[in-house]
Every structure is written in C-alpha cells, then in structure tokens.
Amino acid sequence: MDKTINIKLKIWRQKGPKYQGAFKDYSLDGVSVDTSFLEMLDILNETLINKGEEPVVFDHDCREGICGMCSLYVNGHPHGPDEDVTTCQLHMRKFKDGETITVEPWRSAGFPVIRDLMVDRRAFDKIIQAGGYVSVNTGGVPDANAIAIPKPIADEAMDAASCIGCGACVAACKNGSAMLFLSAKVSQLALLPQGKVEAATRAKNMVAKMDELGFGACTNTGACEVECPKSISISNIARLNREFLKAKFND
C-alpha cells in the first residue's frame, strides 16, 4: 500500500507554566507518508494512552489550515519545514525515513506555555480588543455598494486580512515581535474607506497594547513573512509604521 517511514521524535513535555520542561524521545514505525503531521501525533498519543501514559498536549482544531489553532515549532520552523502551510497541513512525506523530528512549543514571553506544546495566545485577542475593529453597531449602516472600492485596494486588504492569528510570526521572530500580526489588521482596515476613519487611533492604541504586553520591537529581519503560513507581507509593517508615525506627528 502506501509508502511508510520510521521516525524518531524529540517532543517538549512541560506540565505547566511554572514547571521545568524537557524533551522526551519517542519513536514511531510505519508511519504512512500520506498522514498529516497532527495525525502522526494522534498515532503517537494513541500508543501513549494504550501504555497508560498521558498524551502529548497540542492545540489543533479545524485541521484545514484556517482556524489558526495549531502551532508547533518543528525542526526549527514554525509550522514545520513545508512552505505556506500550517502544521495541520504539513504531511509526513516532507520527512525522511529514520529522521529525528524535534517538536517544540512557540517560544516567546508573550506566549507562555500552558502544557507541553500548548501555549497561551490570548495576548493577540487583547491587541485586537485595543482597536482592531471598525466602530459600527449592528444595523443602521449604508448599503454595501454605497462606496466603491478599487479592486486592487480591496484585494490588498484581503491579502492582509487572511492572517489566521496563529502566532507563527512571533514564534519565528528573534525579537518576539507581534508586528506582522498587528500590521495585518491595521493594514486591512487602513486600506478600506470604512476603516480609514479610525486609522490613527487604531494604530496608536494597538501598538501601545502590543508594547504593554511585552512583545519585542521589529528589526525587519523578515523571518515572520517567510514563516507565515498565509504569506502576509512585511510591506504591511511599513504601512503600520506609516500609519503610526502619521498619527503621532498629527497629534
């Protein structure tokens, strides 16, 4: 039937935020190359449970690359070595027979470990709560076609809006900066006429919240863009800088 591989796993196990974590070695034989990475972890967990051990805890949900719940730093890359995918879309055909795969949680002061590979990303919610919205109440809005928006602008806003909030940008950044995440939202809303009204306060408030939450500053290494499963461009960061500086100089 399918091609299978044997692999060795080095997985980070940590009981909780206050506990010391450590790598634990496992090995799995006969893994079909058509299984996804998370299905491989399911198989591992099944064997652990059958042995009476506690399964490896990791975040996952939709398993089709859109909810942003899955994380994992696999062999030195957030979401693993494949390009433009989330961990749930990563398949075992990307690994060689006999390979040792190292699996770590996102590591950043902004994302404390909850258990094993599961981290707390609520800081992202707080950044959005600081201004990642257009202040309109339900109802009482104009007709959807009342304002024409040039297609290239709408498309660019869509590209920025495709951020799934997984946190790979923070995980990849040597500075633990959340600028790509933040800039994607600021950019989307700054491009659209509906969001322009609050563009200045939005940029200021969201950056202030990001700083307050202890994320690092951007040094334009671009690692975030390369590792982003949705290929969000760092040109959004330039736009965020522009919006922020414009707002501050207009104060």
């Binding site: 770590e104 633990g176 202890g214």
Partner: peptide, 13 residues
C-alpha cells in the same frame, strides 16, 4: 527589550 520579549527559553533547533 527584544531579548526579554523572546523569553528565557531558546529553541533547541
């Protein structure tokens, strides 16, 4: 500041 934001734990790989 950035080192602090990165946290104390480093990636093994």
């Amino acid at each position: 500041q950035n080192r602090k934001a990165r946290g104390n734990a480093n990636y093994a790989v």
